[in-house]
Design a protein around this nucleic acid. Structure first.
Length: 341
DNA sequence: GTGATTTGACCGGT
DNA sequence: ACCGGTCAAATCAC
């Protein structure tokens, strides 16, 4: 009657290793391709080296297989895989059993262990808007008066939390009545079909093949203007309103950024605040002064938000990918969008 | 009848 | 102990 059999934890570890292996293989192929691009003429020396097309295919395969592995796992399993340290905690006894026993008694036998986890605000996105609507399917599950806030905070989760295990949640709080201003804080990303479709539809980045169902398209098509590689980190445009971003380099105190309220033009981008050299060039629409974008925060968001046009970008991506260690492999708050080449 | 919202209670982190 | 996040029964809307 022990919690989880050790084989379960072992299996997760194996899956994780497989996943990392696939990604590393893709990274290796990318490096090879990079070298090939650097020295396109040195074709004679390639002992068993692949063509650019083959390498690109290998990279593509690596990503697809990784995605496949993640897709075949339940949401909880993915969490365990990407944060395997937790596996130890899960299987190493229950230090909260006293409190839980107490709660079970109160709740007539229902076990709510682990029902509550304090949010990591640094892994969230914050938007300011005149409306609570963002086009996604949300279900309200709570409302609460917040200390030192005039208005209550509303809690929303994805409508498809139950049927598809989508973990996206958001908190909406009115912070100004005139003009009506809501601050929406997003946690996690949608993994449900409906919201992924909605999110994909209005994105700035053009979508050359809507029938493609894969979120990440790493196809190499050297004939295009953008070059063979382009990896976009998502900045999906929805409606109007001001926008502010947060990332882990900023203060966790949301109120720190309230000065944005008085300006309709401030756009703060986590990418430009980090190592990115190119900035969100593609995020402006038709000269609009302000944007309301879905914020996607990621442990790897320092990658360029614009297409990887050249070798420097590719190199940057490569380096960052190489720098990832086990602790950096976070997918929960990461979103990979289509690549159009 | 079904799904969404409201709201008080509960829980864990600080 | 306090506070914010979540749960779930009751209620509402269609």
């Amino acid at each position: 009657m022990d919690k989880q059999p050790s084989s379960w934890a072992e299996q997760l570890g194996t899956t994780r290793e497989t996943l990392i292996g696939k990604l590393l293989k893709g990274k290796e192929s990318a490096t090879q391709l990079q070298n090939l691009i650097k020295k396109p003429s040195s074709s004679g020396e390639d002992v068993g080296s692949a063509s650019a097309e083959e390498l690109a295919l290998q990279i593509s395969r690596s990503f697809l297989e990784s995605i496949s592995i993640l897709s075949s796992c339940g949401v909880n399993e993915i969490q365990q895989i990407v944060a395997s340290d937790d596996v130890v905690q899960v299987s190493s006894g229950d230090r909260r059993s006293k409190a839980s026993d107490r709660s079970r008694k109160r709740l007539g036998g229902k076990d709510r262990r682990g029902c509550y986890r304090r949010r990591n605000v640094s892994q969230s996105g914050i938007t300011l808007s005149s409306t609570v609507e963002d086009g996604r399917a949300w279900r309200k599950y709570g409302q609460k008066e917040i200390l030192n806030s005039k208005f209550p905070r509303c809690y929303f989760r994805c409508t498809h939390k139950l049927d598809q295990g989508c973990k996206a949640t958001k908190q909406v709080q009115m912070i100004k009545e005139d003009p009506l201003t809501y601050q929406t804080t997003y946690f996690g990303n949608h993994t449900c079909q409906e919201n992924l479709m909605i999110m994909r539809a209005p994105q700035v980045i053009s979508d050359s093949d809507p029938s493609e169902s894969c979120m990440l398209n790493f196809e190499a098509k050297p004939t295009t203007k953008q070059g063979p590689f382009c990896l976009n980190y998502a900045l999906t445009t929805t409606s109007t309103g001001t926008q502010e971003f947060k990332n882990e380099t900023q203060s966790d105190d949301v109120s720190d950024n309230k000065s944005c309220l008085d300006s309709s033009t401030i756009l703060q981008d986590p990418i430009t605040n980090t190592e990115s050299s190119s900035g969100p060039k593609s995020s402006k629409i038709d000269g609009a002064n302000y944007l309301d974008q879905e914020v996607v925060s990621s442990r790897v968001h320092s990658c360029s938000s614009t297409p990887l046009h050249d070798l420097e970008d590719m190199e940057s991506f490569n380096t960052k990918f190489a720098d990832l260690n086990d602790d950096d492999l976070y997918f929960d708050d990461m979103e990979i969008f289509r690549v159009d080449c």
